Computed example of a mutant assay.
Amino acid sequence: MSSVSVRDVAALAGVSVGTVSNVLNRPDKVSEQALARVHDAIDRLGFVRNDAARQLRAGRSLNFGLIVLDAGNPFFSDLARGAEDRAADDGLSVLLGNSGGDRTRESGYLDLFEKQRVSGVLLSPLGDSVARLRQLRERGIPSVLVDRAAPGSPFSSVSVDDVSGGRIAAGHLLDTGRRRLAFVGGPHSIRQVSDRLSGAREAVAAAGATLEVIPTAALTVLEGRAVGEALAGRPEASRPDAVFCANDLVAVGMLQGLGILQGVRVPADIAIIGYDDIAFAQSTVVPLSSVRQPARLIGRTGLEILLAESSVEAPLEPRHVVYQPELVVRASTVPA
């Protein structure tokens, strides 16, 4: 069935196309009789206005784009919720893209948002995206980096100090008496992972302890479970006595691989701390200690900056907002 047009509505209502346009956009300029006839025609024909075309003609969209590294990670779900809540305050919408850690997919979403002429893009980038974001800005689409510190960058950013977060996590494990630590997570090409590892190394070096680095292919529960099973299979003397996982999903998998599947006691044998403090971290079999990030605040702040940048012609001076992480202690790291 072909789509119903404004001309079809005008013909059925017995009015001009201009009158239908006024009903849709400036109803105060139309008589009550004409309003009733046009609305009756709209209902009978099932007409749906083409907002996309209207926005293109106006040169401005009611939508913003958001590209995250992993839409299945509750941290990014919370970040998206914060951005959506702020957009909704102004009657706007956020279109979500999931790069899944794939540069090609990230690039594809940037191309799609450019074609849709969104009012701006929030991006949790895989790598250096400055050149591509410059192209978008030249075409009137500003960008803000989220969950990624970018000091000195020409683009605004909202992030958490992940180096500090890594120090906090490793420092907490050291404070409980652990001295043989492991860092589990990857790939290390993800800036957040490498920053958390860097902070952990600083804390461990200052304490004269040891740190084993165990990379993973992804930041998922399954990857954490596989590492947990592998650690449980080692002789007890060669295991770490504490593990800092790069995010909570890896830590949840680690809990499964060590305790549920292999019988290693957490935290008596191995203490575990995660990162992000996602909603179900406190609901695991052994409640999980974590380093909390203000995910919703990151998303809301990013959208707030993007609204300001999309409302002016010339680029604003970039803002770089960095929040501090917070230690949340639960049963998975009680002192040995």
Rank of each mutant, 00 (worst) to 15 (best):
G208R: 09
N63I: 00
N63S: 13
G65H: 10
A88Y: 05
S332Q: 06
L173K: 01
R225A: 15
R178V: 08
R239Q: 03
N98A: 03
T284I: 12
R178P: 05
F113I: 04
I141T: 10
V184G: 06
L219G: 06
R44N: 06
S194R: 07
R239A: 02
V15P: 00
A205G: 10
D102I: 05
T216S: 02
E114R: 12
P235F: 00
L56Y: 04
G14F: 11
P142E: 01
V221R: 14
A271H: 01
A182E: 13
L62A: 15
R60Q: 13
V329H: 10
V322Y: 08
P315D: 12
D90N: 14
R7N: 12
R292W: 07
T301L: 06
I42G: 05
I278Q: 11
D147F: 00
L173F: 02
S2P: 10
A150W: 04
A226K: 15
G100P: 00
Y323W: 03
Q135Y: 06
P215W: 09
P154F: 01
V15T: 01
R296L: 06
Y275H: 08
P325A: 03
S289C: 11
G186R: 03
V264R: 09
L66T: 01
R81W: 06
P142K: 01
V121I: 13
V146S: 03
L66I: 02
N25M: 03
D51E: 15
L69H: 06
